[in-house]
Amino acid sequence: METLYLSHSNITKLHAICEEYNNDPGELINVLHAAQGALGYLPAEVQEVIASKLKIPVSKVYGVVTFYSFFTMTPNGKYPVSVCLGTACYVRGAEKILEELERQLEIKVGETTQDGLFSLDCLRCVGACGLAPVISIGGKVYGRVTPEKVKKILSEYYFQEK
């Protein structure tokens, strides 16, 4: 694993989050949600800080982080792209959308583009099945997507960056 040093201010932030939940190990999941919200992801160093603050083994924190799909140990791109692979989207062609995104972004699921702009992920159902297939980019939901629309949607973001 690549070495990374947390800044002093980030350590303070993590301590504050743990204290907000009374350093209660029973609140571990809420703590991790808050930590990921603040820092974007949960690398090993972050887990170590949380473990020592809550007085539990790092292995326990790691076990929880890797168990739940919501938590990630790698940083997301500036615009995280998620393809819904729920059943409704699947039968309406979500796989083709995913392949098209992989082709356009030249990355695989779980990776981030070299320029750090996009990361690609799958998720299970945002509950917008009426608009299937659905993708979300940075929280914005795009419905009734087709492989041809993918390029157009991405170009909005490339355009913003120019």
Binding site: D24, P25, G26, E27, L28, I29, N30, L32, H33, V64, F67, Y68, S69, F70, F71, L123, R124
Partner: peptide, 21 residues
């Protein structure tokens, strides 16, 4: 209490463990 993306947590005993952190 927030879930974090695990289908098995819909099962009662798994759900309770998840709520316990």
């Amino acid at each position: 209490r927030y879930g974090a993306g695990a289908f098995v947590c819909g099962e009662e005993t798994a759900l309770i463990h998840s709520m316990e952190g």
